[in-house]
Amino acid sequence: MGLEVVQVLLKAAAGGLFVLLFAALAEMIAPKRLAGVFSAAPSVALGGMLVTAWLSGVSDVRQAALGMTVGAVAFVAYCLAGVPLLKRWGVWKGSSAALGVWLAVAVAGYLVVWP
């Protein structure tokens, strides 16, 4: 239990540090609308994977990276499906249907990655 708490705290600290570094990088690029792409998920993922590699080894990092990749693909499918579904069915039905698309893509991705 103690090691898990330390690992979570280290991941949070590393993720925060990388958020700051990526935010500084985002301030230097143009157009500014791309700044959020660099300052959120990639920096937290990188920090988390570095701590995982340090504490648990490379095989756990591989599993985490595969999970992040499947999640990212599912999120893209959610975004692509969300706009037309929201226009067609409204907020509640459209977002629920888009969530169903996300779930289907995520489950299919995990079945492909971890048969």
Score class of each variant (00 low, 15 high):
residue 84 P to V: 12
residue 100 G to A: 15
residue 80 L to Y: 13
residue 100 G to L: 12
residue 58 V to Q: 13
residue 51 V to G: 03
residue 61 V to R: 02
residue 72 A to H: 04
residue 58 V to A: 15
residue 83 V to R: 07
residue 58 V to F: 15
residue 64 A to N: 07
residue 62 R to K: 10
residue 68 M to A: 15
residue 60 D to N: 12
residue 45 A to H: 11
residue 92 W to Q: 06
residue 59 S to W: 01
residue 60 D to V: 01
residue 100 G to Y: 08
residue 51 V to P: 03
residue 103 L to T: 14
residue 66 L to W: 11
residue 90 G to S: 08
residue 67 G to W: 07
residue 102 W to A: 09
residue 101 V to S: 15
residue 83 V to I: 12
residue 56 S to L: 06
residue 54 W to S: 09
residue 48 G to R: 09
residue 81 A to C: 11
residue 70 V to T: 02
residue 62 R to Q: 05
residue 45 A to R: 07
residue 94 G to H: 00
residue 94 G to L: 04
residue 52 T to L: 12
residue 99 L to Y: 07
residue 66 L to P: 00
residue 75 F to P: 00
residue 84 P to C: 10
residue 86 L to H: 09
residue 68 M to H: 05
residue 58 V to M: 15
residue 87 K to Y: 05
residue 82 G to T: 12
residue 65 A to M: 14
residue 54 W to G: 00
residue 79 C to P: 00
residue 55 L to M: 15
residue 86 L to C: 02
residue 49 M to A: 13
residue 77 A to F: 05
residue 72 A to T: 12
residue 51 V to C: 03
residue 78 Y to Q: 11
residue 88 R to F: 00
residue 93 K to S: 06
residue 77 A to P: 02
residue 61 V to E: 04
residue 91 V to I: 10
residue 98 A to G: 03
residue 59 S to R: 09
residue 74 A to K: 08
residue 74 A to H: 08
residue 80 L to H: 06
residue 69 T to E: 04
residue 97 A to D: 08
residue 91 V to Y: 06
residue 50 L to V: 15
residue 67 G to K: 10
residue 82 G to N: 11
residue 103 L to A: 15
residue 86 L to F: 05
residue 90 G to D: 05
residue 64 A to E: 06
residue 96 S to R: 08
residue 75 F to I: 01
residue 61 V to K: 04
residue 81 A to E: 02
residue 63 Q to S: 11
residue 70 V to R: 04
residue 89 W to C: 04
residue 88 R to L: 13
residue 94 G to C: 00
residue 97 A to G: 12
residue 58 V to H: 14
residue 62 R to P: 02
residue 83 V to T: 08
residue 60 D to W: 09
residue 46 L to T: 00
residue 68 M to S: 12
residue 52 T to G: 03
residue 45 A to I: 15
residue 84 P to D: 14
residue 66 L to C: 05
residue 102 W to P: 07
residue 49 M to Q: 02
residue 88 R to C: 04
residue 47 G to Q: 04
residue 51 V to Q: 04
residue 87 K to Q: 15
residue 47 G to S: 07
residue 103 L to V: 14
residue 57 G to C: 10
residue 77 A to H: 01
residue 49 M to Y: 02
residue 48 G to N: 09
residue 77 A to E: 01
residue 69 T to S: 14
residue 103 L to R: 08
residue 98 A to S: 12
residue 46 L to K: 00
residue 71 G to S: 09
residue 69 T to L: 15
residue 53 A to W: 13
residue 67 G to L: 09
residue 84 P to Q: 11
residue 46 L to F: 03
residue 98 A to H: 01
residue 90 G to W: 10
residue 85 L to T: 10
residue 85 L to V: 09
residue 69 T to P: 05
residue 48 G to C: 12
residue 66 L to Q: 09
residue 87 K to H: 14
residue 102 W to D: 04
residue 69 T to Y: 10
